Amino acid sequence: MTVKVSSIGLRGLEGYRVQVEVRISQDTESMVIVGLPDASVKESRERVLASIAHFDLDVTDKKVVVNLSPSDQKKNGSLFDLAIAIAALKELGEVKREIPLETAFIGALSLDGTVMSGEGILPAIIAAKGLGIKRVYLPYDSVLPLHMIQGIECVVVNHIEEVVQHLEGQESLLSQPHFSSKEHLTPDSDTRQKNFRHVIGHEQAKRALEIAAAGEHNLLMSGPPGCGKSLLAETFPSILPKLTN
């Protein structure tokens, strides 16, 4: 039997769905990862096996084959660790409930099973939402503005055991996320000391800034030191519209 779970891969800031397939069979003890993984993905073998051992599961004399689909896309980073481990635990019978394909797993693992953050978490969450993912398991990170992301359920976990417990319906055992005060900073609460209307002169430059703000154009400032570039740049946000989520 082959178990399939979902994760998210990144091409720059663009995300795509990665189907993590795991099959475990009786054979010479080994773990093989295919699907164009780079060195950072191949290194997940030791982290995943160590995390599985946390559940007192024996993979001796077993061959673990992991396929990351689509196979024509290069995979990089350590954020597939959690998905690989959960698929392996499902294959070994530790996770008994079915895992919906609309559920994704994003996160790196340490040797003791701790789920850790990594580069690309936020773009991955936004990509998951666009791909129709309903729920995503991810590591705790105080700088992620999860309260601003609508339309997708973000389940924050600290340990792979918490993921298994949640999948089995034991939601009360999950740790609750805490966010830093920086996440609650909004354009309204940001006290701007300098306002565009307070700039005297520079009519031609101000006209260019107004056109750039109205049409969402790029803008290049060029001139000698002291001519007012920094002042105009600092006051420019006061005529821009409020940022959306």
Rank of each mutant, 00 (worst) to 15 (best):
V115C: 06
F80T: 01
H159G: 03
P177C: 10
Q170D: 11
I86R: 01
G130V: 02
S71C: 07
E161I: 01
A83K: 04
G132K: 12
K90I: 10
I133Q: 07
S142G: 07
V199C: 05
G120P: 04
A128C: 13
A104M: 07
I121K: 05
L111Q: 12
A128Q: 08
L144P: 02
Y140S: 08
R192L: 09
S142K: 12
L185M: 12
S71D: 02
S69N: 08
D61A: 08
K75F: 03
S78P: 00
I125S: 01
H202R: 15
S180V: 09
T114L: 04
G93A: 08
D61S: 14
E203H: 11
G107Q: 03
G132T: 10
L146D: 01
I86D: 01
P100D: 03
I84D: 00
S71I: 09
N76S: 15
R135F: 07
E203C: 08
L185F: 07
A85P: 00
E203W: 04
D58W: 01
H159C: 05
Q150A: 09
V155R: 02
I125K: 04
K182P: 00
G201C: 10
L82N: 05
N195W: 13
H159S: 08
D188N: 13
A83Y: 02
Q193Y: 12
V66R: 00
I86H: 03
Y140I: 13
L79H: 05
S172W: 04
C154K: 04
Q165G: 09
R135S: 14
E183C: 07
L92C: 07
P145H: 07
I99F: 09
L79S: 08
D112R: 14
Q73M: 14
Q73T: 10
V95T: 07
I86G: 00
V163P: 06
V155L: 12
F105P: 00
K75Q: 05
E162P: 00
E119N: 14
E203T: 13
V199A: 03
L109W: 02
L131I: 07
E162S: 03
I126M: 12
V164S: 06
L109I: 06
F105G: 01
S71L: 00
S181L: 13
P139F: 07
I125C: 02
P70E: 13
I160S: 01
A108M: 05
L68G: 08
V65E: 11
V163D: 00
K129C: 12
A85M: 06
A127S: 13
M148D: 12
L79T: 07
K90H: 15
L111T: 09
A88V: 06
D190H: 10
